[in-house]
């Protein structure tokens, strides 16, 4: 009997290979050989969003979307990193930040992140609990809340990150209609076209997970991104070899990666 569950050996092998690649780049980064990561224009746009809000004297609307107990969790955690970044910048620049947790389960974490960011920047008095607004756990009740908030308060910028679905386009179009700058991010493939085409700037797919490392600039975090690139090359090699062998009628290699 195998130690590893049946049908999961290939997944474990790939996970170990990717983790080894990441560990190797982390080790190199710690030795001083930091991998270069390309500029994430969305982070610059987030800075512009905050600056615009300060100049216009209007709020920034930030929302994290996704559960913490499902497959969405990585996207939610990634959005928290950006929230901390935005909150600290907002505290520094005296911007009016309004935060909307998509689900009730996010309220404690998001409240704590914003509060701590204000304290870290030396402006605890700027934190107001009423700026953490919860609308509903229900998809379109939340969308209605976001659309209403955008229409009433005319925020200068709207930033929404996480595992978004149909509500993303409602919020995005409201932002466009009311002239707000928008940065949206998701790894949900069904929403990628709307996010990429409609938002001022976007964090799509892997960018959402890389943004935390990009912002922190810590060698270990940046190393995980460089390791991801090696993992990508492994994937390309596997796909290339698999396609060639399958074209030649050899199926066993492709079958190795069946789930």
């Amino acid at each position: 009997m195998s130690i590893v569950a049946a049908g999961k050996v290939n997944q474990l092998a790939l996970l170990l290979a990717f983790s080894a690649a990441i560990a190797f780049v982390i080790y190199s980064a710690l030795k001083g050989k930091m991998p270069e990561i390309r500029r994430l224009s969305a982070v610059d746009t987030i800075d512009q969003c905050i600056g615009r809000a300060v100049e216009m004297g209007r709020p920034i609307l930030y929302s994290s979307v996704g559960y913490l107990t499902t497959i969405d969790a990585p996207q939610t955690i990634a959005s928290f990193t950006v929230l901390e970044y935005v909150a600290r910048k907002a505290a520094k620049m005296n911007a009016d930040l309004r935060v909307v947790p998509r689900y009730a389960v996010l309220i404690p974490s998001m409240t704590d992140i914003v509060k701590s960011a204000y304290i870290a920047e030396g402006h605890p008095e700027m934190f107001k609990s009423e700026k953490i607004m919860f609308f509903s756990d229900t998809q379109f009740a939340y969308a209605t809340g976001m659309m209403g908030e955008i229409a009433r308060e005319r925020p200068a910028s709207v930033i929404v990150l996480g595992a978004q679905s149909g509500e993303a386009l409602c919020t995005l179009e409201s932002a466009v209609i009311h002239g707000a700058m928008s940065v949206f991010g998701t790894a949900n493939t069904h929403q990628l076209p709307w996010v990429a085409l409609t938002a001022t700037d976007s964090l799509i797919g892997e960018e959402l997970f890389a943004v935390g490392a990009y912002i922190s600039k810590e060698p270990i975090s940046v190393g995980t991104i460089g390791g991801g690139d090696i993992a990508r090359f492994i994937c390309i090699a596997i796909i290339g070899v698999g396609a060639l062998l399958a074209t030649a009628g050899v199926r066993w290699f492709a079958d190795l990666f069946k789930i």
Partner: peptide, 13 residues
Amino acid sequence: IGVGIGIVALGVR
């Protein structure tokens, strides 16, 4: 695939 690799990197972090 990129998302999967990104999640692995996030998991390692």
